[in-house]
């Protein structure tokens, strides 16, 4: 089951992910913030989380920590702006599987997702 949770406060980013990944056969859940995302994860099981690094209510890193400790089998790919590359590197160290930079093309996103599912 290719179930993916997208956590991003920006609707256009969520939509972009949805429009890129759904036609490729992935099942998507969209959360607007970290708390909502955690709530989704408590109800369902996800193989992959696309997590925005910078969100208003809960820092992406915090959510990453929570996922890592509670659902260690779920992979996390961080979505980041250029300015937070350092943070992304930090995120990788903290256990994120990969990261992609905004603005990303559908191919970039798809490539990263496929890679995550392959291993």
């Amino acid at each position: 089951m290719k179930k993916i949770l997208v956590i991003d406060d920006e609707a256009i980013v969520r939509t972009s992910c949805e429009r890129t990944l759904v036609p490729e056969g992935y099942e998507l859940r969209l959360a607007t913030n970290g708390r909502e995302g955690i709530a989704f994860m408590e109800k369902e099981q996800f193989s992959l989380v696309l997590l925005d690094l910078k969100m208003p209510d809960m820092d992406g890193i915090e959510v990453l920590n929570k996922i890592n400790t509670t659902w260690p089998d779920t992979k996390v790919v961080m979505i980041t702006g250029y300015s937070t590359v350092d943070t992304a590197v930090q995120a990788l160290r903290l256990g994120a599987y990969n990261f992609i930079e905004k603005p990303f093309t559908p191919d970039t996103l798809l490539g990263a997702v496929k890679e995550a599912f392959e291993k």
């Binding site: 256009i12 980013v13 939509t15 250029y82 300015s83 905004k102 990303f104």
Partner: peptide
């Protein structure tokens, strides 16, 4: 940059 990157993501996608 972060704010502009979001709409740009939409445009590119």
């Amino acid at each position: 940059a972060h704010e502009i990157n979001n709409p740009l993501t939409g445009v590119v996608t």
